[in-house]
Design a protein around this nucleic acid. Structure first.
Length: 104
DNA sequence: CGATTGACTTCTC
DNA sequence: CGAGAAGCCAATC
């Protein structure tokens, strides 16, 4: 299982711990993993690890609460999954993200 | 092993 | 207010 760097493992753990109906931003995950500037790695890890691990990648969005992927990619899928979990994209929720808290 | 890339974020002009 | 550049660090080529 441990075939990754500490950062990778921590990120994976954090992503797996995202509660149902909640979302986290890449930056927040990176910050929790100990790399305040490692948001890109979180994104990269998700993209890579999702293929091998069953990560709730759809619960990871931009810090603005916006879906990171374009609708032409998996964006529409992610939106559908989030709506299915009851996640909304209201401005109020976005404010919560910016205040470093979970949404909903 | 060296260079490139990337589901981001933030600062600067 | 909007667009552009820099920074970060691991995975991939």
């Amino acid at each position: 299982v441990t075939a990754y760097s500490p950062f990778t493992e921590v990120v994976l753990k954090i992503i797996k711990q995202i509660p149902y109906g909640h979302v986290m931003s890449y930056g927040q995950i990176a910050l929790s993993a100990g790399h305040p500037r490692g948001a890109r790695q979180v994104a990269r890890l998700l993209h890579s690890m999702t293929q091998k691990h069953d990560l709730p990648w759809h619960r990871v969005v931009r810090k603005d609460g916006q879906i990171a992927l374009s609708m032409g990619q998996g964006g529409s899928v992610q939106k559908a999954l989030l709506l299915q979990e009851g996640v909304t994209f209201k401005a109020e929720d976005i404010v919560d993200i910016q205040q470093h808290r979970f949404v909903l």
